[in-house]
């Protein structure tokens, strides 16, 4: 028996919007720790890792570890039928081939049940070792989204270079080039607007903007984004979900032939 009741149903809607363009089908894993997912895109270039901790749910019952295969587009369609302020409950019986999404409006005078078929998915789970990254940048999530969107109108890839002074995003295309530098900030009154850089070593890596633009669909989930890079590792882009967990995206770099 599985029963997860989330007071902020809008949060689950945002989570699905943040994953559905990257991954079609994925297994959600439910354990006493929480509700999680790890899935790669079809070309094995990017990976999304989601954790919603059990403590963040108003009610969390998961009698045994279960893995439930779902089509993320279909799940997003069903969740779009929930109001942003609705309470959402996920329910599944042991051995059942479907999951029920129950939506309750805030005044609790409208209750809707949506039942979705589960799928069998052969998932390729990757072991991601904990790593110390050479450069970590924390910046406003909306600013990062804006930069990725703007640069993708000029070029297909972005060179991200981190130094002690700041982080530079550069691209080039048929019409010309673009460089955007975000300097490290020192304000203390508005931490959500700060650009914070923790650097062991300067790093410069190139990434496909198409994927970064897909990751920025998670922007509504967090005010800040953390970008971790090392010269010999995929980058990690993390959006922390307050009180619940995180959504992390891993992206393999492009390298010179």
């Amino acid at each position: 028996m599985l029963e997860l009741r989330l007071l902020q149903g809008g949060l689950l809607k945002k989570v699905l919007e943040a994953m559905k363009d990257l991954v079609n089908d994925a297994n959600f894993d439910c354990s006493p720790t929480g509700f999680s997912l790890q899935a790669m895109d079809s070309s094995h270039v990017a990976l999304v890792s989601l954790l919603l901790r059990s403590e963040g749910f108003e009610h969390y019952r998961c009698d045994r570890n279960v893995s439930m295969g779902m089509n993320l587009n279909n799940m997003a369609k069903m969740l779009r039928c929930a109001g942003n302020d609705d309470i959402v409950t996920l329910k599944a019986d042991d051995g059942s081939d479907c999951i029920t999404f129950m939506f309750e409006n805030p005044s609790q005078d409208k209750i809707a049940d949506f039942e979705m078929k589960l799928m069998d998915i052969d998932s390729e789970h990757l072991g991601i070792p904990d790593a110390e990254y050479q450069s970590i940048v924390r910046m406003p999530a909306a600013e990062f989204a804006r930069i990725c969107r703007d640069l993708s109108t000029i070029g297909d890839t972005v060179l991200i270079s981190v130094s002690k002074e700041g982080v530079q995003f550069s691209t080039r295309g048929d019409m010309g080039t673009a460089n955007i530098v975000c300097r490290r900030t020192t304000t203390v009154d508005k931490p959500e607007e700060d650009v914070i850089i923790e650097m062991e070593e300067p790093v410069s890596l190139t990434f496909a903007l198409r994927y970064l633009n897909s990751f920025t669909k998670a922007t509504p989930l967090a005010t800040q984004v953390t970008i971790s890079m090392s010269s010999d590792l995929p980058m990690v882009i993390e959006y922390r979900i307050e009180g619940m967990g995180y959504i992390r995206y891993y992206l393999a770099p492009k390298i010179d032939e």
């Binding site: 094995h44 270039v45 890839t157 496909a208 995929p234 770099p253 010179d256």
Partner: peptide
């Protein structure tokens, strides 16, 4: 020319 690396060249399947 730049080549897109795969995640599988960094992380092991578990």
């Amino acid at each position: 020319m730049q080549r897109q690396k795969s995640l599988l060249s960094f992380f092991q399947k578990s």
